[in-house]
Structure formats: structure tokens, C-alpha cells
Design a protein around this nucleic acid. Structure first.
Lengths: 201, 201, 201, 201
DNA sequence: TATGAATGAGCATTCATTCAT
DNA sequence: GATGAATGAATGCTCATTCAT
């Protein structure tokens, strides 16, 4: 492609922003700081991105593209719906733990504090839920699980996973507990939760 | 009396702060704004609280006292451990949904961005986990559930509940789903998760 | 005398202020800090002193009273005018070095920055100069020195001493020089400066 | 050119700061006031100077460069050491009287109140003392004066001059005395102080 | 006498953003 | 494409002072 140098600095800005996001959180993110770290002027950032919000939007979009890509890849790799469910959950948690900065802006911002971040962008999260719901539904069809409302159930699984990763990332869980053991136990419980013989009404 | 009028403004400051916390989050919380809303000068806030941090600390402490109080009350009200477990979870979720501002400063701040908030205060959250762990353990003793590591299991339950309430509060779940139905379903799953005959490892 | 408790706290305020003055200088002196150190409320200070300025005025006055007292005592103790001159200079320097806080507010404040400090208070410094001028004049009369304008000469001596003590107090002189040796040398030079056979015009 | 307009405002900031320094002293110097007087925003000052301290540092450095430059120029102009000594003293006093704002930040701040002002900057004052000491030493070598410890003697002369200019600047000397006459008398005494036949120890 | 509560103006500093060049 | 210069509003916090009690 052409414009390689412009892409280079644009990419730098995005990457520096991501790193600063992990370190300082979104609220301590400043254009000045980004420019200093990138080694360009603030004006340059404004040339590539309309505003600070636009810069963060771009990262949010990138994050969702990345997450959806790996979730679909995972979904397509396994035909057994139960195994697929487990794999999807593992993929989600892995994504969150490996990309805390993406995860933060994708899932941990409150909408009322950033009305300016277009809601429609966040709705892409549903794609992930649909993949999970499909695995639940197919499992039910094949009598491997018994799930009445797969879409709602997908939300419950999401809640579980989200709670786990956000407490881990916030380092709020007892440090004496083994992190991987917790994740493994959680994933095991996920399949248990919807066992056919558990449904009781 | 003097005491009541002095308490009045102090209380006002705390309450206004809580409300602003829900609206704007902790990072958009400003002393000026609090004073404007309370109808006093900034200096007055500084008369009652040493600093912005001290003001937030007071709220954090209040929140934990409130949560622990109702959790213990709940725990003491029910002898059947399975019912107690359920009641504890309901109480926790209710607390979070009714007091989003307390919940935010208690459970949704990342430590690296609030080093100045004394860690020891946050450790009080463990009291809640211990109450849950005890219910799990007693249930196991009475063969109502089968939980190998009750403390770890309590963390898993906590993660589930935390994920649920934080996604609900952030309005990130599909609005077409009924909120109360989701909560009920979650609580039902919680007991299912540790059914005796589910343990397979 | 009666009013002992009131005097006690009043005295405390004055003494604490003096100590803070040495540590922080006049500009970092705050009513809050004084009250904290005294262990009373700010209001109490305002009961005893009309304002921060009035408090400092009181100290300035105290300082001048003290200085004038010891200068007069010194003057009255020695009849030989040359010895008296030397003793007066020694006394002045000693006062400055032992009471840096008094010295600061007495001699190191610029009038344009504190118009509110009544000039007439500062004029009391002239009493000191007159004692020195008298010693110079009497020395001249007795042909021990040759001083044409004793009052101007007193000002020169004052300048010398003031320069010495203020540079020493500000720790601006080379630390490798012995402080007492400098003072001794200065005092020696003072008598030399007005030797009869030095006058050449 | 661009360079001239950028320098223009930077220079304005420095000059306004100097003027405010004379009027109000360093402690009453505020960034707001500077910006108001310059006619720019506070942010602009912060664009040109990292902080208030950095701004003052720049002035301190400027002051020392100026003083050292004219002292060296004076030193190089006269070969006769006695005349050189006199000229150096005149130059020093002139500098102080003409640049009271530089003089204040260079010589009248107490170190405990300005720890942040790098000590190494102040040590440049010694250069001035060395020039004076050299003149004293050469005068002694040529038997024009008799000075045992020229470096200490230079400090004494400095003290004398510093006392004179700081009392004059603070307008603490009797206003009826002629200022220039005082300065002249002081300079005359300076040479007298170290006359060969005065040394008696 | 003494205090606790309150105020309003002030402080240094940082921020997202703009724009001529 | 990119920058340096500038802005105005915001931030947390401190200050001397007042006054009812």
C-alpha cells in the first residue's frame, strides 16, 4: 500500500494509547502524554484523530474486531456444541486477561459517563453472546444440556466471566488463591450450570 | 442543637458526593461541583474532610459497614445453610442494585488508580466472602451441597454476582431481557452450581 | 498580676509564631499553623490579636525593645568610647545571630510589601544608630578616631554588620570559612575603618 | 520571523516577572498575576516555562550571567589592583541598585525557603568573590595593601556592600542621608580597611 | 474567653482543543 | 502532514478573616 509513514505514526498513537490505558486507566489518559510518548506534537494526534473520543472509539472498534474474530474462529473450529461452549468461554476469558486495555474500554465504561461513545459500537458485544447462545441451543437440541432461554443463559455466562475477569484485573480477589485454578473452576462450573438434570422447573 | 446542624452539612456533603458518584463516576467528581450542589463553599468541605480522598474514604467505609451489617443480619436470620446461601446472595445483589454509588467505590475501582485508598479498607470485603463460604461449608457438612474448597467457591459466586450487577449497572445487557428475571435465574443457578451430584472431580 | 491564663496563651501564640518564623519565614506563616501548634483555634488568635499583621507588629515591637534594652545596657557599661563602640557592635551581631526570627521581621522586610507595618515602628532602629554615633563622636572628641559625620558613619557600620549577619543567616557565605572568625575580623575592621590617621580628606 | 514573535512573549513573561518581583517580592509572585500583566493566559506561561520555579530559575541564571559579565569586564579593564578593587565594588553596588529584582532572587532568598532553587546556581556568586580576592591579593603582593586572607577579606567586603545595598533597597536607612554619598563613603572605607599600616595582628 | 463553622478569593497546575504556518 | 503556540476552563487545595454561640 501507499501511505506507509502516515500509518506508522497513526499506529504508534493507537499503541501508545493502549499502553497508557493499562497503566493509568481512561481517566488519566491525556493527549499531552500520548504525544510525549509517541514523540510527536499534540497537533499531530488531532490530525489523525478528530478528538480524544475519536481516538478511543477507534480502539474500541479494534477491540471488538479482535474479539469477534477470535470468537468466530473458535466457534468454527469445534463442531461438538458442548466443547464449543467451553472453548468459547476460554477464549473470552483469555482475551480479557491478555488485553486488559481493550477489555476496559470495551466492557468497563459506564454509558452515562460517555454518552458520546456511540451505543451502536457497544452493541457489537452481542455477537459474542449469540455465538454462546447458539452453542447452548445446539447443546439443548442434542440433549447435552437443558437450557430454556439460551439468549438469557448466554448473558448469565457472560456475567460470570465478566465478574471473574474484572475482579481479577482489579486485583480484588484474595491473592492467595491461584488465578488459573479459579479460571478453570469457573469454566468447569459453566458446563455444570446447565446440565440437563439440573433444570427443575 | 449545634450537633445536628454541623452534622447536617457534613451529611449533605456525603450524600451529594454519593449522588454525583453515580452520575459521573469517581474521576469526574470535583470538590467545586460538590460544593456547588451542597450550596456551600469549597472551604467548608475542607473543614469537614481533610481532602477529597478522605471524603471518598468516609463513603467507602460507610458502604462496607452497611453491606456487612445487612449481610450479617441476613446470615443470622436463617439457620438452614442452603436457604442462608440464597438469602446472602440476594442481599448482596440487592445492596449493589440499590446503592450503585457505594458499590462503585467499593468494588469497581482499579487499585493502580487509587493507591491512596487504603487497601486495608478494601479487605473488609472478605468478611462477606467468609459468610458465604461458611454457608457453603455447612451445606456440605449436611450433605446438601458438595463443595471441596468453600473459600474458592465463595469467590466464584462473588464473581458471578459482581459480573451480573456491574453489567446491569453499566446497562450493557440487552435491554429486552427482564432485569429481575436475570437476577432470579442467576440466584437459581448459584444453588445448582454446587449440587452434590454435580461434583465429578 | 491578674490575668495569668490569658497571658499564658497570648505568650504561647507569640512564641510559636517566633519559632515558625525561623523555620518558614514570614510568608509561609499561617494562622492555621500557629493555632495548630499552640493547640487552640484560629478564633482564639483573633481574640488576642486583631489580625495577622497585628501579631507580627507585636513581635516587631518586642524585638526592638529587646535590642534597644541590651544596646543601652552595653552602652552604659563602658565609659571608654572606643571599647564601647566595639561592645555595641558585638552586641548587635550577637542579637542578630541569636534571634534570627526577630531580626528577620525587624530588618529584613521590604516596606513596599508591607505598607501596613507602621513605619514609625521601624524608626526605632535609629536608637541603635544613635548609640553607635555617640560612641563615634566621643571617640573623635577624644582624638581616638577621626569621624567627620558620626551619624553617617554609624549607618556604614550598621550596613557592614547587617550584611554580615544576613549573609550568614542566609547561609550564603562559603561554608568553609569559620563563622566566628568572620565576625571577629569584621569587628576588628570596624575600629580600623575610622582610625584617625586614615582620614585623608 | 517566527523566532522573534515566540521570543517576544517569552521575554515579556520574564520581564513582567522581574517587575513584579521588585514590587511584591518572590512570595507574592503569582502565575495568574504574571499572565494578567503580560496579557496572555496562564497556559501560555506553562508552555514557555515548565513551572513557576523554572521561570524563577531562568531569571536567577540571567542575573548571574549579567553580574559575572560586568564584573569580569570591569576586572579586565584595570590593571592597577587597587583601582580594580574599587571598580569591582562600584560595579557590584551599581548592579544591585540598578537591578533590585535580580539582586533579590540572587542574594536575598533564604535557602530553607527555596530548597528547590538549585544550590549550584547560587554558587556562581563565588566567581564575584574570587575576582575581588584576586585584586586584594595582587594589591598585597605589590605592597599596596596588607591582606592576610584575601578570600575571607573578599567576604567581608561583600558583606559590607550587601548590607549597604539591601538596607538602601529596603529603604531602612535614614532618608535624610544622601544615598550616593553613603555609597561613596562606603567605597572609600573599603580601601581604607585594608591599608598596609592598619594591620596590627 | 474561646471555639467551630463558614466564606471567598487566591494559589499552581493540567487539560482538550484550535489554528496559523 | 505536522508543529508550536496559545487559550479558557477546570482541577485540588490553602488562606486570612468573620461571627454566632
Amino acid at each position: 500500500m501507499a501511505a506507509s509513514s502516515e500509518n506508522h505514526i497513526r499506529r504508534s498513537i493507537l499503541d501508545v494509547t493502549r499502553h497508557l490505558l493499562v497503566q493509568n486507566g481512561i481517566t488519566n489518559l491525556s493527549m499531552r502524554m500520548i504525544s510525549r510518548r509517541v514523540g510527536c506534537s499534540v497537533g499531530t494526534i488531532y490530525f489523525h484523530f478528530k478528538s480524544k473520543d475519536a481516538l478511543v472509539h477507534t480502539l474500541i472498534e479494534e477491540g471488538f474486531e479482535l474479539l469477534i474474530a477470535i470468537m468466530e474462529q473458535t466457534a468454527s473450529r469445534t463442531t461438538n456444541p458442548l466443547q464449543r461452549l467451553k472453548a468459547l468461554c476460554e477464549t473470552y476469558i483469555q482475551f480479557a486477561m491478555k488485553n486488559p486495555e481493550y477489555y476496559e474500554i470495551m466492557f468497563m465504561l459506564k454509558p452515562e459517563r460517555m454518552e458520546r461513545y456511540p451505543a451502536e459500537k457497544y452493541r457489537r458485544a452481542r455477537h459474542t453472546l449469540i455465538l454462546i447462545a447458539e452453542a447452548l441451543e445446539e447443546s439443548t437440541r442434542r440433549k447435552l444440556l437443558l437450557v430454556k432461554d439460551p439468549y438469557q443463559a448466554a448473558h448469565l455466562l457472560w456475567a460470570f466471566m465478566h465478574g471473574l475477569v474484572s475482579l481479577l484485573q482489579a486485583r480484588r480477589m484474595d491473592a492467595r488463591l491461584d488465578q488459573q485454578a479459579l479460571i478453570d473452576a469457573a469454566i468447569e462450573k459453566i458446563t455444570v450450570m446447565f446440565r440437563a438434570d439440573n433444570e427443575n422447573g
